[in-house]
Computed example of a mutant assay.
Amino acid sequence: MKIFSWNLRGLGNPRGVRSLRDLLTKEDPDVVFLQETRLKVAQWIFCKYSLGFKNCFVVDSFGCSGGLAMLWKDDVNLHILNYSSHHIHALIRNSMFEGGVGIITGVYGHPQTERREEVWSIVKALGRGVTSPWLVFGDFNEILNQSEKHGGNLRSERQMAGFRSVLEEKGLRDLGFSGKPFTWCNRREGDIICERLDRFLGNLMWCEAFPFTHVQHGVAAYSDHTPIWLDSNGGLTKRKGHRLFRFEAMWIRDRDCTHIVERVWDESEGIGNCNDLMGKISKCGVELSKWNRRSFGNVQKELASAKEKLKEMEDLDPAYQQLPQHKVAREEVQKWLEKG
């Protein structure tokens, strides 16, 4: 199972949607937890489909901030248990869990320091009586120790102790990560601060059930937070089947797309039954995929190159000491995402 988490600081603009859709297409997660969506429930009716999901639970944003969403695939048997403006708590039924049940909790730590304890109290309360594998993850807006921060003043020991108390009382373990050491940066030239605010935590039952669990800190040209994801199999199990056909939004702007669909549809007699309909849809997919490689192959190559350069930049300079170069690399990715 792959679970994806990202504080994307707003999904109400094309750049955010493009960046998220690009990541989800590549990583193909089973469950997605998004923080600070800044969207209302009604706006998700269209948004979830544009991201490739039909199942979605949303917590409204308040004003121009906040907002949570959990999305999951059709073959994931997920049930929402409870929620607040700072968490979504869900149960997953699957034979991979001992007892057939696992618990996942997406968390968004309060951005106001003086109110962060409210969220810790919620997590502690949710953990009472949990007797299944339990995964807690998201943007906690807090670090566990000083090594998880670069720049700025030292973090208050009292603040960190409050967060550590959640792990100690509920038997949660930090599941580690691969990638750059920080998941948030203020990107303020001359006063750079970087911190590891986003993470996955698991109880002992989770760790025993999934000993090969792997957490990855990703790369994205959007938001001041880094997307993170967990693979319970450590990437050892490959996805089965062929890559799914996806209709790309960029095709609509090209008249050739319309011509291909019209030609395939007009090649034979009308539709007699469902098999005829599915046959035409399948052939459209094949023809559009061929045309995509011919017409947009260069855009996709340039996008892949730009993303690789951004990754190299972040690997070499995780504390953003060369901020202008980071900005250039991020803009280059956005340029090719927009062209795509």
Rank of each mutant, 00 (worst) to 15 (best):
C257M: 10
T258W: 03
I260F: 03
I260G: 05
I260M: 08
V261C: 06
V261T: 00
V261W: 00
E262S: 05
R263K: 14
R263H: 12
V264P: 00
W265N: 01
W265Y: 00
W265H: 00
D266W: 14
D266Y: 13
E267W: 11
E267K: 09
S268H: 14
I271P: 03
N273I: 00
C274D: 01
C274P: 01
C274H: 05
C274N: 00
N275Q: 13
N275I: 11
D276T: 09
M278R: 06
M278Q: 02
M278W: 10
M278E: 03
G279I: 04
I281E: 00
S282I: 09
S282P: 00
K283D: 07
K283E: 13
C284F: 11
V286F: 10
V286K: 11
S289T: 15
S289N: 11
S289I: 02
S289G: 14
S289H: 13
W291C: 06
N292C: 08
N292I: 10
R293A: 11
R294F: 04
R294Y: 06
R294P: 04
S295C: 12
F296M: 11
F296N: 05
G297V: 06
N298V: 13
V299A: 01
V299K: 08
V299H: 09
Q300G: 03
Q300E: 14
K301A: 05
L303Y: 02
L303I: 05
L303C: 08
A304G: 01
A304V: 02
A304L: 05
A304F: 07
S305D: 15
A306K: 02
A306I: 07
A306V: 08
K307A: 13
K307W: 10
E308R: 15
L310D: 05
L310H: 11
E312W: 13
D315R: 04
D315F: 12
D315G: 00
L316Q: 12
D317N: 10
D317E: 01
D317Q: 06
P318F: 14
Y320A: 03
Y320W: 15
Q321P: 03
Q322I: 09
Q322D: 13
Q322E: 12
L323S: 08
L323M: 09
Q325P: 01
Q325F: 06
V328M: 14
V328S: 09
A329S: 11
A329W: 04
A329I: 05
R330A: 08
E331M: 01
E331P: 00
E332G: 11
V333D: 03
V333Q: 01
Q334C: 13
K335L: 14
L337M: 14
